[in-house]
């Protein structure tokens, strides 16, 4: 081939070939209509931090020292990106606590205050807002979700006659199909029953979203748009710390609040008292009273996912 002496004709042909192949590559680049000069982003974290973040291990595999480092690294990263001092905690599950939630459908009026409380608390991407709670406006007398309308108008007076309202969020199943589906164990059930995601381990394949019967998992299709003034600086590694592009997220029962004995943001935001949250292992808790004395039911119970989220009516 080229290693041999070439005649001028051969040389010309070889040159033409290289030129032609180069032209094909160039034409392909043009046809991709990708910006040839991508806007250079200001590096939001030091090279060293990015390097260590890349090789960061799975949350459950890190030693306590490595976790401390990872938390500090995240805080530096958020400081550089948003210029806000974000606290990233990793409060462990409380002893003898398994969380459960019950929602009174006869009290829910469809105000969607829980949705607002959730997005204020959990640092989701804004405009359009990523929401963990979806409230369906249902026909009275029907539990067919297909007839529910999640897009009923913001300005319309609720409750409307002949309708009832069904808020749906992550049900924190005892037998979570999403955890089974994840190929890299980036999502798991904590001892207190909360199903969490390690946003630094998720590869973004969306297997979990396909497995979830409650449509509770939301994906970051683009770099999250989180205005500085909307940031909640009190965060948890497995909870509401600001997320990245290309990873899955979901309701964590406000892990950053509930592990400190507070109520989830949606429970506090609800003006009608339709939401009851508490420790399922505490026989004197309100949630236990509801489960024992009310006519409770669970969504899609036939799938055996064993949700820890119940609905009831008075």
């Amino acid at each position: 081939m080229k290693f041999f002496r070439q005649s001028p004709d051969q040389k010309r042909r070889a040159a033409l070939k290289t030129l032609g192949l180069g032209a094909a590559v160039g034409a392909g680049a043009l046809a991709s209509s990708a910006n040839p000069l991508p806007s250079i982003e200001v590096p939001s974290a030091s090279f060293e931090d990015n390097w260590h973040e890349f090789f960061q291990q799975h949350y459950q595999r890190m030693s306590p020292e490595e976790i401390t480092e990872a938390l500090a690294r995240l805080e530096r990263k958020y400081k550089a990106k948003y210029d806000v001092d974000v606290h990233v905690g990793n409060a462990p599950p409380l002893e003898g606590v398994v969380f459960g939630y019950a929602l009174n459908v006869s009290k829910c009026q469809g105000y969607r205050e829980c949705v607002k409380g959730c997005t204020t608390e959990n640092n989701q991407t804004k405009d359009p807002d990523l929401e963990y709670i979806r409230v369906l406006e249902m026909e009275k007398g029907s539990m067919n979700l297909e007839h529910g309308d999640p897009y009923y108008g913001e300005e319309e007076p609720v409750p409307k006659p002949g309708k009832f309202y069904l808020p749906i969020q992550c049900h924190h199943c005892e037998n979570p199909p999403c955890v089974k589906a994840c190929p890299v164990k980036a999502t798991w059930k904590e001892p207190d029953g909360i199903v969490v995601v390690d946003y630094n381990w998720c590869i973004g394949c969306r297997m979990c979203a396909n497995a979830c019967p409650y449509w509770a998992r939301k994906f970051n299709w683009h770099e999250p748009k989180l205005p500085v003034e909307a940031i909640n600086p009190q965060t948890h590694y497995l909870g509401n710390r600001p997320r990245f592009r290309g990873v899955m997220e979901k309701c964590t029962f406000c892990i950053q609040r509930t592990r400190e004995g507070k109520m989830p943001a949606c429970q506090e935001a609800c003006p009608t008292g339709a939401r009851v949250f508490g420790n399922l292992l505490d026989p004197h808790s309100e949630i236990r009273f509801v489960l024992e004395n009310k006519n409770v039911f669970r969504l899609k119970e036939e799938l055996n996912t064993e949700p820890k989220f119940w609905y009831y009516s008075d």
């Binding site: 094909a24 590559v25 392909g28 680049a29 046809a31 991709s32 990708a34």
Partner: peptide, 9 residues
């Protein structure tokens, strides 16, 4: 090569 380059970019 044209299609590969288009895809890669």
């Amino acid at each position: 090569l044209f299609f590969i380059s288009m895809g890669v970019f």
